[in-house]
């Protein structure tokens, strides 16, 4: 047993704000692991993904959720996807690596990102102020994702439900990012 105990303090832990019926909050214990598909062995890697999660690697610009709703796969690039799942312990990458059995390269991204869930009628009007991607339901269906930039910060926006978006941005600028989304909500409410 060590004499010293480390406590986990993600930058937006406990963040929860309401604007009427619209809620902006930080999901708890969201782990993110990136998967890179080995060049030439993409098929093998895709099979391993299918075996591990029981869903196929989604197409570019989309995500998919496992049948038990526990895990989301986001396709961010031709050879790269993120796995998102709830995991309070700092071993997310090991868990995914074990599932994929060496068929893809994995990197822990949990602490590289901060996450905010934005849900409610003001979600889209608020994002209109900072997000240049077209989020109209006809163009951005449920499970659509886009990696883009908001207020000079790299960001990923994912539509998880009719009026619900998951936003990811760099963890070091988490406070600036949360402020940008909050200010948008204030401006449209």
């Amino acid at each position: 047993m060590s004499d010293f105990i480390l406590t986990s303090e993600p930058p937006l832990a406990g963040f929860d704000r309401r604007f009427g019926d619209t809620v902006l909050k930080a999901p708890k214990d969201l782990a993110i692991v990136s998967i890179a598909l080995p060049l030439g062995d993409e098929t093998k890697a895709e099979k391993a993904i299918k075996t591990a999660f029981d869903i196929a690697l989604p197409a570019m610009g989309t995500s998919d959720v496992t049948s038990d709703k526990s895990t989301t796969l986001m396709r961010l690039a031709n050879d790269q996807a993120f796995v998102l799942f709830a995991c309070p312990t700092p071993d997310a990458e090991r868990q995914i690596a074990a599932k994929l059995k060496g068929a893809a390269y994995t990197t822990d991204q949990t602490d590289a990102w901060c996450a905010l869930e934005l849900s409610g009628p003001l979600a889209r009007p608020a994002l209109e102020r900072i997000c240049m991607v077209d989020l109209h339901p006809d163009s951005f269906a449920i499970n659509a994702i886009a990696r883009t930039v908001m207020e000079h910060m790299g960001a990923i926006v994912a539509r998880t439900d009719a009026d619900t978006y998951l936003l990811l941005s760099a963890s070091s600028s988490a406070k600036s990012f949360a402020h940008a989304v909050e200010l948008s909500l204030e401006n449209v409410s």
Binding site: S34, A36, P38, L39, G40, D79, Q80, Y105, T107, D108, Q109, T110, D111, A112, W113, A170, S171, S172
Partner: peptide, 15 residues
Amino acid sequence: PDMDVHLISTTDAWA
């Protein structure tokens, strides 16, 4: 283009 190599930033991931 035919090298199998993958890059990802982990600057913010590690203190």
